[in-house]
Design a protein around this nucleic acid. Structure first.
Lengths: 145, 145
DNA sequence: TTATAAAAGGATATTAATATCTTTTTATAA
DNA sequence: TTATAAAAAGATATTAATATCCTTTTATAA
């Protein structure tokens, strides 16, 4: 499972993308409200994302968050990597320090299939693709009350 | 990813099974040493497992941990459920409160495949099957230094 | 029946994740 | 050029996970 912070990050990025497509640069307050995350905490997460250049930001009046050119095809992997590292793609499901094809833990063979499946999703799915599925109406960002 | 506590629990149970097959009832100290986990913390985890009847224990001289009859085919799911609940089998990969086939988040379709794959492993794999793969030499419990 | 070995239970400590609040910097509109 | 709006930065608070320590209970061997 991804950490709460990573989830907030992904949801925030998707929302920024959607607003950017409408020529808008949302601010912390709007983003936090839309992704249903605490505002101050969302601000911290957006800070991490901009610091790592996954996202652009503008200070001052009329400022907000946006994607630059080289930030358009951000993958889930990029976001996860910045938010919580990539242990989830490498770690043994059993918690053993050295576990691999040659020296497998009892879970290795089956677990690797799942772990690699998740890695495939992370490396393939992009923020803009996720956003587009929402724009098209195939998926939703917020819960429908 | 499973929590550290859950990993310790699974490793501990597998080790108890292996020792039980040798007619031994390992104690906290031996278990902690073998699974490379802190001793006092391991004791707490074993307490949780025995309290939930996943494992038997005997106090006093010659005491230790062991499996009873109805504890022989414990699944990974049983262990995970007791240690950290079953959020990992239900939760949305995106962190949305209501996300399902009818109301999917952008990740839903692909993520569900991975999540269900993990659920299948958890429901299928048993402590004794894992232990047996070690006994046979097909897998290892400890890292080989 | 007493000393000892072992798990159970309870209290506390540490660390990491999550969250909030305040001050500072920066940009823009008036 | 000043007031305002916004993100950045820094400090602190809270909560949950991980970890340790001490005391109590229980069983057994001597």
């Amino acid at each position: 499972m991804l950490s709460k912070s990573t989830e907030y990050a992904i949801r925030a990025l998707v929302f920024v993308q959607l607003r950017n497509w409408e020529q808008k640069r949302p601010g912390v307050d709007e983003i936090a409200r839309e992704i249903e995350a605490p505002e101050a905490y969302t601000a911290k997460i957006l800070q991490i994302l901009t610091k790592h250049k996954l996202l652009g930001s503008a200070k001052g009046r009329g400022g907000g968050f946006f994607f630059g050119e080289n930030q358009s095809s951000l993958t889930l992997y990029d976001v996860i990597h910045v938010m919580e590292g990539d242990a989830c793609f490498h770690k043994c499901g059993f918690g053993l320090k050295s576990c691999n094809d040659n020296n497998p833990c009892p879970l290795h063979d089956k677990y690797v299939v799942v772990r690699d499946g998740f890695f495939e999703i992370a490396k393939t799915e992009t923020i803009s693709a996720l956003s587009d599925s929402i724009r098209r109406g195939d998926a939703v960002l917020n819960r429908i009350v």
